[in-house]
């Protein structure tokens, strides 16, 4: 990999300053970025590690009842500390990668990268979570802009994610067994105001809401309510693991499984 200057600020203010340098890149847990650097697919001049910033780590409950997770919180911490308040999210975190990856990889890193097969984006979109950065708050519906693309501006850092905890919710993932990324994953969240469904791993544009399923489940929250629905395979991912038609079927199957276990 190409060399870079490495800095590890201990406060958000210092991290924001460091990110203002030319060609600076934020480093979360590095579980995607370091392999990317090794392949020379990225060549930042400055790498700003966010893992030394205590104020960006941890899980807590906000005044409005939302579950707040610091942007630099590793998956393993979410798996443990969110279990009582939001078990579906804890289970999602506990299923990312493997134990060593979960000890390093962070929620902020995953969301900023917006891999089309990552798990977290589905939870954020299905719950209508709020992404808090050093400059603003971004609604989940406005955050994901397509393949590896988000609403984040250069230098902007995800400091916290606030999840409204659903009455019932679950994540069901059909995993690619080697990488444990989602071949297709469905996150279902039921609120008093209705049901939201977000699908990851399936679309060439990354995570998306399956609005037909949301309507059907808002009227009748049962797996059977999805029986009459079909998912078009246009724009879905086709690769050696599965065709677009296969993934279209998985969208429905995994959503049903999520509803059944919610």
């Amino acid at each position: 990999m190409y060399n870079f200057d490495f800095v590890k600020p201990t406060s958000l203010a210092d991290a924001v300053k460091a990110m203002a340098q030319e060609d600076a890149q934020a480093l979360g847990g590095g579980q995607t970025l370091i392999p990317t650097l090794k392949q020379r697919l990225a060549s930042p001049a400055v790498l700003v590690s966010l893992s030394g910033i205590a104020e960006m780590k941890g899980v807590c409950v906000g005044d409005d009842g939302a579950l707040c997770i610091g942007g630099a919180t590793p998956h393993a911490t979410v798996a443990k500390e969110a279990a009582a308040k939001f078990p579906a999210l804890a289970a999602l975190a506990a299923g990312i990668g493997d134990p060593a990856v979960r000890n390093r990889g962070t929620i902020g890193g995953s969301l900023a990268n917006n891999d089309p097969s990552a798990c977290y984006p589905s939870a954020v979109l299905a719950t209508g979570a709020t992404i808090v950065t050093n400059t603003r708050k971004i609604a989940a519906d406005d955050f994901f802009e397509g393949l590896f693309t988000t609403a984040l501006e250069p230098g902007e850092i995800i400091t916290e994610v606030r999840f409204p905890v659903p009455e019932r919710g679950a994540y069901a993932k059909f995993q690619q067994p080697a990488s444990r990324f989602a071949l297709t994953g469905a996150f279902v969240a039921k609120y008093g105001s209705g049901v939201r469904v977000a699908i990851t791993g399936a679309s060439e544009n990354g995570v998306f809401r399956w609005t037909e399923a949301e309507k059907a489940l808002s009227a009748n929250f049962s797996a059977g309510a999805l029986d009459g629905l079909t998912v078009p395979s246009d724009g879905l991912i086709g690769d050696l693991h599965g065709t677009p038609a296969y993934r279209a079927n998985l969208v429905k199957v995994m959503t049903k499984r999520a509803v059944a276990s919610a």
């Binding site: 490495f6 590890k8 480093l27 590095g30 579980q31 370091i34 392999p35 090794k38 790498l47 590690s49 893992s51 393993a76 493997d98 134990p99 060593a100 990856v101 000890n103 390093r104 080697a178 990488s179």
Partner: peptide
């Protein structure tokens, strides 16, 4: 490439893949 786990060490008591952590971190 952080897949095989042969390089696992403990950093502050947590198992991590040392090929996917910078020494400076």
């Amino acid at each position: 490439t952080s897949q095989c786990g042969a390089c696992v060490v403990h950093v502050d008591g947590k198992a991590v893949k040392s090929c996917t952590v910078f020494a400076a971190d």
